[in-house]
Each structure stands twice: as structure tokens, then as C-alpha cells.
């Protein structure tokens, strides 16, 4: 529990209903930050979403989410995470299908 609580922290100044909040996500970088920002911005209920890496020597990102209609940004974040998982599985399925199809050029490279 303590280990999981360390992964994400809601920063001071968030709305009590979490309709606007900044999340500190530890041990993550642009890799997750930018991908999550894209999927959150795809959500019509999200008014604003942005992320930053406050300092290169601190291994954390800050993700800001503001919602319309006083909805919870935490719900939107969870939804974006599940959509991102769908993206990953779709890409992997199509990649494996293409690899199995064998419709590509094969060649030899000397090392």
C-alpha cells in the first residue's frame, strides 16, 4: 500500500471534487506523460490536459487535468489508462499478424 501510494500523489491546490487536479507521478517520464496527455485530450469531457517534467534530475512528471461539468479527473485518468492499454494490445495484435503473414522482404546482414 505504501509503495503504491508513492507512485501517484495529488498536489496541493486540487479542487475538492477533483474536477481540476495536478498529479505527481513518480518514476515516469515523457514516455507515459505524453501518451496519457494525448488520450486524455481525446476525452471530450476534459477541458485541459498537460504534463511536464519539472526538473531532469527528479524522476517524476506532473500531469494536470481539468474537467468540464465538475467530473472527476481521477476517473478520466483511469479511463485514459484503460484506453492506452487497448492501444497497446491493438498494435501488438496487428504486428504479430503482419509478422505471421510473411509479406515482407527478408535479407541477411553481417555483423
Amino acid at each position: 500500500m505504501t509503495e503504491l501510494a508513492q507512485k501517484i500523489k495529488i498536489m496541493k491546490g486540487a479542487a475538492p471534487d477533483l474536477s481540476a487536479a495536478t498529479y505527481q507521478i513518480f518514476d515516469e517520464s515523457h514516455t507515459m506523460g505524453n501518451a496519457l496527455r494525448w488520450l486524455l485530450m481525446k476525452n471530450p469531457k476534459v477541458e485541459f490536459c498537460g504534463y511536464s517534467v519539472p526538473h531532469p534530475s527528479e524522476n517524476l512528471i506532473q500531469l494536470r487535468i481539468q474537467m468540464y461539468d465538475r467530473l472527476s479527473s481521477l476517473d478520466a485518468l483511469l479511463e485514459a489508462l484503460s484506453h492506452l492499454d487497448d492501444v497497446c494490445s491493438s498494435i501488438e495484435d496487428k504486428y504479430r499478424a503482419s509478422l505471421a503473414g510473411g509479406q515482407y522482404e527478408r535479407w541477411q546482414e553481417n555483423s
Binding site: T31, L74, D85
Partner: peptide
Amino acid sequence: LLPEAVQVMRTKIATLRRAAEALL
């Protein structure tokens, strides 16, 4: 390599989701 990268990404997503659910 790509399947390995997808696997790493999905592990990161699962960790984040557990943390977000705990926060909720």
C-alpha cells in the same frame, strides 16, 4: 523487440492503474 516494448508499456500501465485505483 516491439512485443517486448509493448509488454513493458502494459506493465507500466498496470502499475499506474493500481496506484490510481488506490488513490480513488
